[in-house]
């Protein structure tokens, strides 16, 4: 099924607007599509709508207007009982981590696998390996309240990538870790990306953006814009590059 859908964009926004209750539009006429295996940074000032954009992608919000396709499925037409299968293909790293306080490190990371119904011995193998990789093997039985911000962030990342999702959305995933760990995490993301995972990372970290030279979705006051590459390096139009089409903000990469 996943192979059959590989030719369609993983994410496709068509004239999407979002506003919360009676407030102003936080996202305006957003239009773009992301191909399978692409890697994008979402940039913009605080309050520009980065988190809102991601929340639409991980199905936490529904657009006020416009159409969103995920993995070729129109979200407005999808039935509620079909959402879990779609959501299991998406890994999310939340800015506020959202770890479950009553679960220890192991159980927090194992959660997506348990939701999928994986066998315990396989879960144990996978989780232990990944926790060792992110340097948390000693915290395996520790509860989130006893962990530092950086450790929590690594658990949140481990949880998001444990089931090798087709789409990984990360909101400031390196905000609480040092540069060395940030680099390590980004390289993990790159590895996943090489295996076909589509990555969308919201960040303020300009050093990372410069280092990884990936295309950006830049938001300014809820409007999608194009920023030149940090080094003004010409980006080739490839399968990893987004196609931006918008009424107000058409641009090329």
């Amino acid at each position: 099924m996943r192979n059959l859908l590989s030719s369609v964009p993983v994410v496709d926004f068509h004239r999407v607007h979002l506003k919360y209750e009676n407030g102003p539009n936080v996202l305006k006429n957003i239009q773009f599509s992301l191909e399978r295996g692409s890697f994008h940074f979402v940039t913009g000032d605080s309050g520009a709508g980065k988190t809102s954009l991601l929340s639409l992608m991980y199905l936490d919000q529904r657009p006020t207007a416009g159409r969103i396709h995920l993995f070729g499925r129109n979200l407005s037409e999808i039935k509620r009982k079909q959402l879990p299968n779609l959501r299991r293909r998406i890994g999310v790293v939340f800015q506020d981590f959202r770890l479950i306080s009553s679960l220890n490190t192991f159980d927090n990371v194992a959660l997506p696998l348990r939701i999928e119904g994986m066998k315990e011995n396989e879960i144990k193998k996978r989780v232990t390996e990944l926790l060792a990789w992110v340097g948390l093997e000693k915290c395996i039985h520790t509860f989130p309240d006893s962990l530092s911000g950086g450790e929590k962030q690594r658990i949140a990342i481990a949880r998001a990538v444990i089931n090798a999702p087709d789409l990984l959305l990360a909101d400031e995933p390196t905000g609480n870790v040092d540069d060395a760990m940030a680099n390590r995490i980004l390289h993990l993301f790159l590895e996943l990306n090489k295996m076909g995972t589509t990555l969308v990372i919201a960040t303020h970290n300009h050093a990372l953006i410069r280092q990884f030279k990936k295309p950006q979705l830049h938001l300014s006051n809820g409007v999608l814009e194009c920023l030149p590459s940090p080094f003004k390096a010409p980006l080739e139009k490839s399968s990893t590059a987004p196609e931006f089409v918008g009424e107000y903000h058409d641009f090329e990469i």
């Binding site: 879990p84 999310v92 479950i100 997506p112 939701i115």
Partner: peptide, 16 residues
């Protein structure tokens, strides 16, 4: 509610 929302976002079914 926050835990439920999180579980939903991870693809947990209501029955789970």
């Amino acid at each position: 509610a926050p835990v439920i929302k999180l579980l939903h976002m991870m693809g947990a079914r209501d029955s789970f």
